[in-house]
Amino acid sequence: MSVLANFGGVLRAPPALVAIGVAVLVGGLLVLVSGADPLQAYAQIVVGALWPQNLPDTLNWATPLVGMTLAAAIPLRGGMINLGGDGQLVIGALVGAVAPLVAPLPGPIAAALALLGAGLAGGLYAALAAWGEIRFRVPMLISSLLLSYPAVGIVSYLVRFPLRDTTTGLPQTAMVPDGARLPILIGPLNMGVLMIVVIAALVVLVDRRTVIGYELRMRGANARFAAYGGVALGRQALGAMFSSGAIAGLVGAIIVLGGQFRYIDDALLSPAYTWSGLMAALLAQGEPAGAVLAGLFFAALQTGGFAMQRETSVPRVLTLVLQSIVILFLAVRGGLGKRER
């Protein structure tokens, strides 16, 4: 039995590869449907993502995606699912976009405050879902998602009406001052990449080497066992959801302060970072290092998708299809996320 378990560890890699293979096959058929050449489409994805001169773009795209992957991975590590990343993301982004406008502070300090505020706001909003489960027994899986809709609606209202930049005709806030924007590193890359790298390293460290990481892993393996061992499940859920939401909020602020410099309605949600991040986290079953890898993979796929759409007229939404097929195949084949019975 234990020998089998050890073999399982060795064999774990291939199912992911098989899943990717299946996705590529199904995707190829879809490309044929649209009347294009699958090989050419895939070649464009690979070139668009991994050609040396395109790598910075891939990394730039990966910044929010890996961030949202980590946001999804933290609760997942403890057997919980946060489906409300969209709401936490827009709340953080709005705080990040508005704080430098209202706080008359020197640029870097305003930026730091904006990021901090964004993390806090996103975290508190996510923790609300956990509180709802502890206090009212509303399943977090559902409440986290439902809470997203009011957040998105209200933020959208604020950006269109009270906080709107009236000098333009678009639903967006005013530009943040130059000083409060995240410094550029190289090419399209800004400070946000480094922040995500640091967060990823921290999450991996906490997961592997700390008491809270251990307790969260044990909850993921068996929540009743963790409770029996003295883990306060309610407090832990609050903490995990707060961390998750804080990272999501921070990602929102990074997008605003690093690239768009203002909150543009709908611009944050149309790339569906939340869902790609959740899928990447599911792919690694919440293990943070693996989740980061999966997030990078999806980011490369999506960046390549832009090139494919440009060069071959195959719609880039194909990459979303590919991602979901990978997840579905693994969920069905490998018992991904299977609960203890």
Partner: peptide, 9 residues
């Protein structure tokens, strides 16, 4: 498979 994961997918 896990129904929750399948449904999300």
């Amino acid at each position: 498979g896990d129904a929750v994961v399948i449904c999300i997918g």
